[in-house]
Design a binder for these strands. Structure first.
Lengths: 210, 210
DNA sequence: ATTATATTGTTGCTTTTGCAACTATTGTAT
DNA sequence: ATACAATAGTTGCAAAAGCAACAATATAAT
């Protein structure tokens, strides 16, 4: 769900000889990393998709966040809060860049260009994360499923300069993102259709109001 | 609600002669700034309290976020999303530090120490914001008021190394923060008490489970 | 001291949401 | 081609949450 700052520019130039930065590949269902309050790990998803998940005492899986290409994640963004251990699981073949934030801050011995660029871009990278999180909070704080859906559609509509939007992911995921029951969300979508507020055809949605 | 990184250390040394950084004072109800998609404004609340609010088409006021001492805010954290203009209103006498992110990135002509320190601390400052937002999202995504309350209490409990916590703000604000109806939240607190899960005396709460 | 304002606490009623349990459809793997 | 898995779509029912409208305190303002 990342949308704003484009880290691709300098990530494409990746060539760091120092040991501070690592790139690893993962296949479907592999655990990329865990959050257990041990280090300031900072990760960038270079390719693929991954989920941040929690398993509660009953073994129920909750997807807290979903990461796509160029999204950043890692324990440094998610300190303590509860006792639960969190996992980042690869949804498909993925490539991930790892480093420890405290290591990268200090000057690189081999003074590689990548290292330098990464550090100078860190504020923007993290800012784009803040914007994404604020967007989600704005939606999560809406009091009804209807308002959450309309708020979400409005954001996509403004971004695409169009009243018609196409969801690039499953409705199951959308329900997770908005933190509502999927069947209740489907029902509300139907009501929005019946009320003439949206037009829906599969994952193509058109806003009819205003 | 800021908790992590302490920007006070270098903010106390504030003495910037360059024009890039400004400090202004505000009294109760004054508008500190607005978010209208115009510039990368970055603010740090040095003293007081402030609310980020939205007025919808009916004039209803929604408090999106509440800022305390050392919290950061500004349009740079909150790009577009909807057409609504957002306001940051001072809740009492407040002191705010302003700068435009793009200006501060470049070297300061007068090469003042503060300027330099600010830039080198930006990643940490923004990271602490990310952690706060992730914490709130974790609570907002919980499906029931009970889970939201218990999640919130648990976080405070872990932070204070104590099963007994004291809320430093109103229950009205807590309901806003968790984005639930206040009266429904009060009812749920009563049920938690009746079920022997918490003990409550005013704003002092003790967790009894485990 | 008295008024005004904000916060807390409570309750009946209504609406919304979640849950469970399906079927239908689409996509993927062998 | 067929089986398996994931996604989409639907519905009845029960539980949870929102809304409205209060009274009771507590805090701040004049």
């Amino acid at each position: 769900m990342s949308i704003n700052f484009n880290i691709e520019n300098f990530i494409n130039d990746f060539s760091c000889s120092c040991s501070k930065v690592q790139v690893k590949n993962f296949s479907k269902s592999e655990v990329i990393t865990t959050y257990i309050q041990k280090r300031n790990q900072f990760c960038i998803l270079l390719e693929g998709h991954a989920d941040l998940v929690r398993y509660d005492y009953n073994g129920n899986k909750t997807i807290i966040e979903r990461f796509s290409k160029n999204d950043v994640f890692g324990e440094i963004f998610y300190t303590i809060s509860t006792n639960n251990e969190l996992f980042v699981e690869s949804c498909e073949n993925s490539k991930v860049l790892f480093f420890i934030y405290d290591d990268i801050k200090s000057k690189c011995k081999s003074s590689c260009k990548f290292h330098e660029t990464l550090v100078s871009n860190l504020p923007e990278i993290i800012l784009s994360k803040v914007i994404d999180l604020n967007t989600r909070i704005e939606l999560l704080t809406k009091r009804s499923i209807r308002d959450k859906l309309l708020g979400y559609f409005e954001i996509l509509s403004i971004r695409n300069f169009s009243k018609t939007i196409t969801l690039s992911f499953s409705l199951t995921y959308l329900a997770d993102y908005l933190s509502v029951d999927r069947s209740a969300m489907m029902r509300e979508m139907k009501l929005l259709k019946d009320d003439g507020i949206i037009k829906k055809n599969g994952n193509k949605i058109t806003l009819l109001y205003k």
